[in-house]
Design a protein around this nucleic acid. Structure first.
Lengths: 229, 229
DNA sequence: ACAGCATAGATCCTATAGGAAATGCGATTC
DNA sequence: GAATCGCATTTCCTATAGGATCTATGCTGT
């Protein structure tokens, strides 16, 4: 408590539960917490040197993202890995939501958006492709940023909520797949196609290119799943 | 605490936070908590005669549904009413997700599902249409059940998550609209059309009829919004 | 009269303590 | 040898207390 929370640049400051949330999210992201691992409230509190109360609150929020699961009186644990079938289901769900996002985002795309999409693609190209989580993170961040920007630019808070409901799962699949970057070249090419549609202002084309992209991801992920087994 | 939690029929028992969650949800549903109302943690704890800790956890879960909003160090408040534009956005989002649900659910619909959909329509017909929340609730419950059954029958947990991300909002719009049942006849007819498509096993038709239904809801809700102002 | 400030109350946030339940381990019995 | 029972430890869950922050009211000064 002695540590003052200065530099609260914005109007909304942060409380401990927020920091715990970020810490847990980070641990889930870069693989320190593996699928199936129990997440003890008291244990995590000791580890982060806080009391159990903010940990409890952070976990309640995380549960909504699907990253952890809760059983009453038995605690939380990291959500299990996806089966190939579930992976296909996830991609099917993305095929429902993200092409619609692309269509609507393209309708009112400006130069700033296309510029930032371009930047995300450049970052994707520049990102290291090593198998370690730390390296992986930069790649994933650029990929996620590309899709999220489109979701946000659709200008529909409800579609964004739906995307968020999936977003966390997409991340988990990527990281816990443990495969590293296997489809960078394809992804870069497909992202570029989507960007071109945005620059042309062709919303219907943008929708189609997003479909193509996710179909591609789906097929490649299925292939990767087979390799893994 | 003296009250034993017997009758734990299932494997997962309930804890206090679950009860608080249900109580808050009920209060939000039937209008006891109006839009914009602050929800004090300590106050709610006193009212429900529990400690603030489970209230805090229940509110953290509720925040994910969009029913309440949180500002750090300033507490929770019931999410504000929708503007007509937001209402249109919500319907657009439903137009993205629910037709896809209908399509996929129809693909493996059995007699049990159609029977239960039929029952939901019957309940819709039988429900009172008074303006009071208590009366309204039965109507809403049957309507929500119809859509939820379809979402669940799509057999895709991720699409179901996406639907859930919207579901809470749909409820809020209905109840906080404060308009009572204004479109029962239309809704019953449109639901019946969807059911027919299910019985015929025509997935593409089911998708289209769901589109028609939500388009109808969208138009009627826009009209209602104008009436309200 | 109105703006600015100080104080009081309420509220949020975190830590701590203790009871209740679940898990793990060893001893006992068939 | 395998299954079951009992006990100890761990963990979850809830309550309580106190510090930090926010909001509102009243006061002062211009």
């Amino acid at each position: 408590m002695a540590t003052k929370n200065q530099a609260s640049g914005g109007v909304s400051r942060q409380v401990l539960a927020d920091h715990v949330y970020e810490a847990l999210l980070g641990a889930l992201m870069d693989g320190r917490l593996e699928a199936g691992t129990p997440v003890s409230i008291d244990g995590m509190a000791r580890e982060l040197d806080v009391s159990p109360t903010p940990v409890r609150e952070a976990l309640a929020r995380l549960e909504a993202t699907g990253m952890v699961r809760r059983m009453a009186l038995r605690g939380y644990r990291v959500a299990p890995l996806f089966s190939p079938e579930e992976l296909a289901d996830l991609m099917d769900a993305r095929l429902v939501i993200e092409p619609a996002n692309a269509f609507m985002a393209c309708k009112h795309a400006d130069q700033e958006l296309t510029g930032r999409l371009q930047q995300a693609i450049e970052d994707l190209k520049a990102a290291p492709r090593g198998p370690s989580f730390a390296e992986f993170r930069a790649y994933w961040e650029a990929d996620e940023r590309f899709h999220r920007m489109i979701a946000e630019s659709a200008n529909n808070q409800f579609l964004l909520s739906a995307y968020n409901a999936l977003g966390g799962q997409v991340q988990r699949f990527r990281f816990f797949g443990g495969l590293g970057v296997t489809d960078a070249d394809y992804a870069i090419a497909e992202h570029t196609e989507i960007l071109k549609a945005f620059e042309a202002g062709d919303a219907e084309l943008a929708r189609q290119k997003m479909i193509d992209h996710i179909e591609g991801v789906k097929q490649r992920s299925q292939h990767d799943s087979e390799v893994r087994n």
